[in-house]
Computed example of a mutant assay.
Amino acid sequence: MHTMWKGTISFGLVNIPIKLHAATENKDIKLRQLHEECKSPIEYKKRCPVCEREVESQEIVKAYEYAKNKFVVLDAEDLETLKKEQEDKAVEILDFVKLEEIDPIYFERSYYMSPSEGGSKAYGLLRKALTDTGKIGVAKIIIRSKEQLAIVRVYQNTLVMETIHFPDEVRQSKDVPNVPEETELSKKEVSTAVTLIDQLTAEFDPEKYKDEYRTALLDLIEAKRNNEEVTTAADKPKPDNVTDLMEALEKSLEKTKGGTKKKTTKRKSNAGSKKKTS
């Protein structure tokens, strides 16, 4: 399992060297966009609208837009230093709370935690303490240059870290439009709805839920492959030096014409003024 973060997590005076591993994976089927005419993949290029040319990665800097078209440029060195300062700090569990006190709307991503060398005993100690108390730990961690609020809990004998949103990142439910206030409902309507919920109530078994759309899409792709309904992208045309040279010459000629017209006008006006003097 790929390690995506290494560090130390502590509670009180106990330090646990750990590694984080992504607990989930995205299984969405990625579809490419092709040019219908030649079936070639579409390219997305970084282009500067002012300089009117493509821009290389090394020419790009990061900035914060504090007002329309007003930026504060942040040097890569500054960002790297700030990131290093934060990442070097041990992750400290700040509080212990009950899991049910946190609404699911706060949860973001899950990571499995494994002990690094020499951390097995401390790892087991935290796991046992969390299990016995029925509590979870609340901590802060820097992941991918972003400070995250996180919780540490036990899942099937493994410690799991789940990043959660900060309160100001969760939008207020009162701002949702068209939500009705208390509505008048008859006792029969409520009773029928409750009965329906009771009839559909079951223990949660994640294995019974399947991504039917993804399965159907894979079946469709496989069927087209078996029927040889496939296409191959056309070879990228090699640059024609003659054509490129002609284009460059034509553009240069246009610029020269523009400059010549200006010079000619200036000469005429000078000639006219000399004639008047004589």
Rank of each mutant, 00 (worst) to 15 (best):
T3N: 05
M4K: 07
I9M: 10
S10W: 03
G12E: 05
L13S: 05
V14D: 06
I16R: 00
I16C: 03
K19H: 10
H21D: 02
A23W: 00
K27P: 02
I29V: 13
K30L: 15
L31W: 03
E37P: 08
K39C: 06
S40R: 13
S40F: 07
S40N: 11
Y44I: 14
R47F: 15
R47H: 15
C48D: 07
C48H: 06
V50S: 07
C51E: 05
C51D: 03
E52Y: 06
R53S: 04
S57F: 15
Q58K: 15
Q58W: 13
V61P: 00
A67D: 14
K68A: 12
K70H: 07
V72I: 06
V72R: 04
D75I: 02
A76M: 09
L79Y: 04
K84R: 14
K84F: 09
K84P: 07
K89W: 08
V91G: 02
V91W: 01
E92W: 06
K98H: 13
L99R: 15
L99W: 10
L99E: 15
I102G: 02
I102N: 00
D103S: 11
D103I: 10
D103P: 04
F107Y: 14
F107H: 08
F107T: 06
Y112K: 01
Y112T: 01
M113I: 06
S116D: 09
G118H: 05
S120M: 14
G124R: 09
L125A: 04
T131E: 08
T131Y: 10
K135P: 05
I136N: 00
A139K: 01
K140W: 07
I141Q: 00
I141K: 01
I143Q: 01
R144W: 02
L159S: 04
V160T: 09
E162H: 01
I164D: 01
I164Y: 00
F166H: 01
F166N: 01
K174E: 12
D175H: 03
P177A: 02
P177N: 03
P180I: 03
E182W: 11
T183Y: 06
L185N: 10
K188V: 01
E189F: 04
T192W: 04
V194W: 03
V194A: 03
I197S: 03
Q199P: 04
Q199K: 14
Q199H: 08
L200W: 07
A202M: 13
A202C: 09
F204Q: 09
D205Q: 11
Y209F: 14
E212S: 14
Y213T: 11
T215P: 04
A216N: 09
L218K: 04
L220F: 13
L220S: 14
E222H: 11
K224C: 14
K224A: 13
N226P: 04
N227R: 12
N227D: 12
N227Q: 13
N227G: 08
E228D: 15
E229K: 02
V230M: 12
P239A: 12
D240F: 05
V242D: 10
T243Y: 13
T243A: 15
D244Y: 14
L245Q: 08
M246N: 09
M246L: 14
A248G: 08
K263V: 04
T265V: 10
R267K: 14
S269N: 06
N270T: 12
G272P: 01
K276M: 00
S278F: 01
